[in-house]
Design a protein around this nucleic acid. Structure first.
Lengths: 331, 331
DNA sequence: TTGTAAGCGTTATCAC
DNA sequence: GTGATAACGCTTACAA
């Protein structure tokens, strides 16, 4: 700033960096040129102090390295970068417990918006720790779920509808003659997993199946591997396994093929959920339910921008659908 | 702040949050209690303006979703969080071109430190865009590399020594009778891959092997898959494949087993590099060269803290060694 | 179109 | 041990 003073007044510099401010074109140009030479960029901290906008978007995740989250963070960071924001990462405990300490900590950075992927953070808790930002909550509503309470805390949502994809998957399993369907669940507290299970249960009933056999997992490879062995060795097995996510499906596949000596899809059919990048790797080549990553990120960015544009707006909701990607583990 | 004023002066509040400041114990306690009730946290933007510390650590990566990077980011975020910092994520283009636009953009956020994983960003470029922060550069020095220039730009380094791990791998391959060793390289411009290749070449010579056959990859699964097919169908194959990273090794494994009908480790032995989480999944069960994630993160955090403690210090360097993890793809 | 002045929330300095 | 005051770098009235 001081440096640029050599040429013009300090406010002129501020205006030069703000496209809306009125400033003679040649003057702006001159200032920007000098700024580039001097390697000057307006300090966002100072800017934040007066404008109330930090251009920081908090993202709360339990595990960055989960394939699902990491792909989401990657795409989101790119998209936010293009809009002039930066991704500020926060990690919860692996037990999904969103402690108040973390939220208080995050508060200090004063993010413009917060996206919570972690599934057990209640909107009310998040809202309590954010005076300015309106959190975005990724949710998996169920068909017959109750409507929103009239005057809860303000938050925006990205609703993921799972019925279409799961119905397509079950139809396919049915087409290939599967009768006994198992559900390899995710983490016990996970809303995503609970919603998937409920939707699966509903779809199975609609199509005349018995309810799913439940195998407890935690979204991870190892647990899925063990749960599958238990399911087949002790509990009579199944001819179709629906996993709560792709990584669980990999664990199930490896257990079936390498430990139990069963053929997939010959003896058992397997369906995953997410369509992460390695689902098409040859060793797995997984049939899975997908919701498009880039659509999802676009929806999140839309929510953020709309909210910043009108902080007082009513709850904003974006809705996304799912569909089945057919590969080699059902057939 | 204003709110807390109801009880005492504003400076007292500031002091209450700074453990070093002198303040009567009971007064501090009272202030902190009120702050908690009012859900108050000092604003970091304002704090940054006067202290010059943003508590933001910039991390520049080409792909968050690469397994290697994502695991690093995850561990780093946790460690930084414990020290009171937050991870600010920036993405370069996938072609690894670190454009000045991104650096200028990052500058505005004024991070306290910057970690560049991307391998082709020259320290001098990074330094030019950072007035305050001293960047940390992750490097893979080679045995006979020239010493540092006397008065280059100031930056700190994390040096990864690859010789031990690669030597152990080659010794193992030798023990099982491998003769023709191929190197499945990473991205063309990558220093990591170049260093691995040079080290492998050196180790092979030391142990009386021919130089490695080169197969061009890009650290990705697909390219490795194709390169392996090309290597075996057109170029006479090999009986030992050393891949630039684990993901490439997965691609090679799948090509060997599912496309070329070869047995691993019976016909061909495969070694990876990184030891990412899925390397022990049953479908791969990869023998690989590892450098410990948590050691690495601790080293990075040490570098950051030492530098912030003494911004004028000479270049700081941490050195880390590698070792072989033996699993099922060599034997 | 441009400049002047006030103020954003915090901490450092210097009194007391 | 405590409080007043200035300062950090920027934006946004308001006035010219």
């Amino acid at each position: 700033m001081v440096a640029a003073l050599a040429q013009v007044s300090r406010v002129a510099v501020s205006r030069a960096f703000n496209p809306h401010a009125s400033l003679k074109a040649d003057k702006r140009e001159r200032i920007l040129r000098v700024a580039r030479e001097l390697n000057y960029t307006p300090d966002r901290a100072a800017r934040a102090l007066v404008s109330g906008r930090t251009h920081l978007i908090g993202v709360i995740v339990p595990d960055v390295y989960s394939y699902w989250e990491s792909q989401e963070i990657d795409a989101l960071t790119t998209a936010l970068q293009n809009e002039g924001f930066a991704t500020l990462l926060f990690k919860t405990r692996t037990d999904y417990s969103m402690d108040e300490q973390l939220l208080a900590y995050m508060r200090g950075f004063n993010p413009d918006s917060v996206i919570a992927f972690v599934e057990n953070v209640k909107p009310v808790t998040l809202t309590r720790f954010l005076d300015r930002a309106v959190p975005i909550y990724v949710d998996y509503p169920m068909a017959g779920a109750p409507a929103e309470p009239e005057h809860g805390p303000l938050y925006d949502r990205l609703n993921i509808l799972q019925h279409s994809g799961i119905d397509q998957a079950v139809a396919l399993l049915q087409g290939y003659g599967a009768r006994r369907i198992a559900y390899l669940s995710g983490h016990g507290k996970s809303r995503a997993s609970a919603a998937r299970e409920a939707t699966l249960r509903q779809v199975l009933e609609e199509r005349g199946f018995q309810p799913p056999i439940l195998a407890p997992g935690d979204f991870g490879y190892e647990t899925a591997y063990q749960a599958t062995i238990d399911l087949f060795r002790v509990r009579g097995g199944a001819d179709g396994v629906f996993a709560a996510n792709d990584v669980s499906a990999f664990g199930a596949l490896d257990a079936l093929r390498h430990e139990l000596g069963l053929r997939v899809p010959g003896d058992v059919k397997v369906v995953g959920f997410d369509d992460i990048a390695q689902s098409h790797w040859k060793s797995y080549n997984l049939t899975t339910v997908k919701f498009d990553l880039h659509e999802r990120v676009r929806a999140l960015v839309r929510l953020i921008l709309r909210r910043l544009n009108d902080p007082q707006a009513e709850s904003l909701v974006e809705t996304l659908d799912t569909r089945l990607v057919v590969r080699g583990t059902v057939g």
